[in-house]
Every structure is written in C-alpha cells, then in structure tokens.
Nucleic acid binder design. Structure first.
Length: 346
DNA sequence: AATACGGGGAC
DNA sequence: GTCCCAGTATT
C-alpha cells in the first residue's frame, strides 16, 4: 500500500526524538503507553522520566507500595492507570518471572491494557502486525478516506480498526503504527492542519471535498433532557379507567400508559384543570381532579429525566374504551406506570 | 451501548 | 467555553 509507505517515509523524516523511541524494552514501552493514554506527550514526558528513574525495571515497580506509585503518578489523572500499572507489574514479576507476554492476545489480558496498548506493545516490541487505533489514527483515516462513521460508535470502532489492520505494513508494523500516530499528531492535527505541505494531499478525500474540518465525526454525548409527564388516571363510578397504547418510535413502544399530557414545564392543578376541560376524553364532562404525588417523581432513563405527576380524575362515566380497573394488571406497562399502579389504592 | 474516570493544552 | 489528548473498565 502506497499510503503506508508514504506514512513511514514521512515518519523517518519528521519524527520527534522521544525517550521511548530509543528502546524496544517491553517494560519501557508498556510504561510509556500507559502514561500516554488520553495524555499528551508534553504532559506525560516528565512522568515517564521520573518513573524510570524511580523504577528502572519491572522488579523495582513490583516491589514498591501502591501509595508510592500513586504519589509518583500524582497530577497525571486517571489514577486507575497507576493502580493497574502496579498490579500488572506484580503479576508479571510473581507469575511470569518478570517476563512480559509477547503477543497481542496475551498482552490484552493484562490489567489496564486494552486493544490499543496491546497492539502498540506487540508491534513495537515484538513486530506483530497488530494495528493501533488511537485518536490520531481515527483522524487520519477518517479524513484520508472520507469516512464519516462516528468514531465513538461501536460501528466506527470496528470499521476503523479493520481499515487500519488492512493498511498496516506487515514488513514494518512497529514503524507503521508509530508513523500514523505521529502523522496525526504533527501533520494531520485536529485544528487547522497545513494541508498544503501534506504528502497525502493529492489522494486525501476530505481535502478534495473540503471536509477536513468536518472529520472525524464524533457523536456528542446526548445531554439528559428533562420532560414533564402528566398522566391522567381516570376513574369512573363503575370502577373503570383508560389505558392507551404507545405507538410509533421512542420509549415504551407498544406498552400501555394512562392518557398523557406532556408539558414544557411543571404544571399546577389550576393549570392542568384548564387543559383537562378541553381534553378529548373530558369534554362536557364533570370531573374532580387531585394530584396523587406531591413530590414529582423523577424517572430516569438513559437520556431523559421524566418529571412525572399522576393526576387522579374522578368522573361519572367513561366511554366504551374504558377498561375495568380489575383488569389493569393484564396490560404491559412501563415500570413508571407499574409502580404507580402497585402503590395506588384503587 | 453508555458512562466514569483527570488534568492540561490549544484555540 | 469547547474540543482533544498514543483509552480502559465497568455497568
């Protein structure tokens, strides 16, 4: 693949001199990779130096106290990395005689080592053609191939990993992996990359389509939206009520609920009464309304908080769609409704 | 499939 | 403020 060669060539001419690039010792590579997870080189570099000074080998690290490791990690964040680092060092010393696993598959078993880190160590130290996919690789590939699959979706992770794996130079996986990452960090950077000096400018899809700034696509974590649900618990003198089936998409499809009035904001009894008098089910009907729950029930779904009020509405009669309250348990209902039914003394 | 997990750098 | 950074573990 010509792209792979171009990247490796660019790397040989442009790579920064970094201490972990002077060695293939798995301990050093492992340490550097853990430190650099979600961490910029500038921030991680001093920690790499101090860790190697304090713990020159995996045996030194394994013999330390966890608090000593955490102290040295102080300020770097994501402290589970430090705890896993220490635990893994002990594991390697005590169970593996101080010898690092040498394949992607085995490395993946280590605490704190995921797909990325296992690939990095396997390729750099053991020449295994396991493609790394980090934030840089997502950016380079999405732009070069013009792929807009969200990089934080399951689909995207699969797709980009496969693409990187197809692209990797099996003759030189170590340099290819580091090349594409370094290229992403230095040349194909997030903001305002200088594409006029890019060695891939002639074949970059995003550049042709002027979509460099649109890629990669990352779906925003949906903010939790707040909704106000008002359920109308209608009760007739002959002990009937009304349940409605939820149609269409969205939550609770095909489940049953009391007639619902969704409002933009929380409503008062006075406020809801006004709406009720014109409601389809209550037109020209005498009714008496009261609020069941004084405290708003906040039902939490993944991306919605449902601020819920149950309004008890007594009427003389209900039409033919009403069901006997005694049958209410035969209908599938959301937990929110089910909890109310169980708690309410019909 | 979401979410928690840190802190700093770049704009 | 917003986005991003050589991601992983847990729910």
């Amino acid at each position: 693949m010509i792209v792979s060669k171009t990247l490796i060539n660019w790397y040989s001419n442009n790579k920064r001199e970094l201490p972990w690039r002077q060695t293939k010792d798995p301990y050093c590579i492992w340490l550097s990779e853990i430190i650099l997870q979600q961490t910029q080189i500038k921030q991680g570099l001093p920690y790499y130096e101090s860790f190697l000074r304090e713990f020159p080998t995996v045996f030194h690290l394994a013999n330390a106290d966890e608090s000593q490791v955490l102290k040295l990690w102080q300020g770097l964040g994501y402290y589970s990395r430090a705890r896993n680092l220490h635990a893994t060092a002990k594991y390697i010393v005590e169970k593996l005689n101080g010898e690092f696993p040498s394949s992607y598959k085995e490395l993946l078993q280590l605490k704190g080592v995921g797909d990325y880190t296992a690939s990095a160590i396997a390729s750099i130290c053991f020449n295994e053609p396991a493609a790394v996919v980090d934030g840089n690789v997502y950016r380079v590939l999405s732009r070069y191939f013009g792929i807009d699959t969200p990089i934080n979706s399951t689909q995207g992770k699969k797709e980009f990993k496969l693409l990187a794996q197809q692209l990797i130079d099996i003759e030189n996986p170590a340099d290819f992996n580091q090349a594409i990452m370094e290229f992403g960090a230095v040349q194909c950077k997030p903001q305002n990359p200088n594409c006029s000096i890019c060695p891939l400018q002639d074949s970059c899809v995003a550049l042709q389509k002027s979509s460099i700034n649109q890629l990669p696509v990352k779906t925003k974590p949906n903010k939790v939206s707040k909704k106000h649900f008002n359920f109308l618990v209608l009760i007739s003198k002959d002990n009937k009520t009304i349940l409605e089936k939820r149609e269409g998409k969205g939550i609770w499809q095909n489940l049953y609920q009391f007639p619902l009035i969704e409002t933009k904001t929380a409503v008062t009894e006075k406020n809801i009464s006004k709406q009720l008098s014109t409601h389809e089910l209550l037109k020209e009907v005498d009714f008496e309304v009261s609020l069941y729950n004084d405290n708003t029930i906040i039902h939490k779904l993944s991306h919605q908080h449902l601020h819920t009020k149950f309004w008890i509405i007594h009427v003389d009669n209900l039409n033919g769609d009403a069901i006997p309250i005694d049958n209410i348990h035969s209908y599938p209902v959301p937990i929110l409704i089910g909890n109310f039914i169980d708690a309410f003394n019909f």
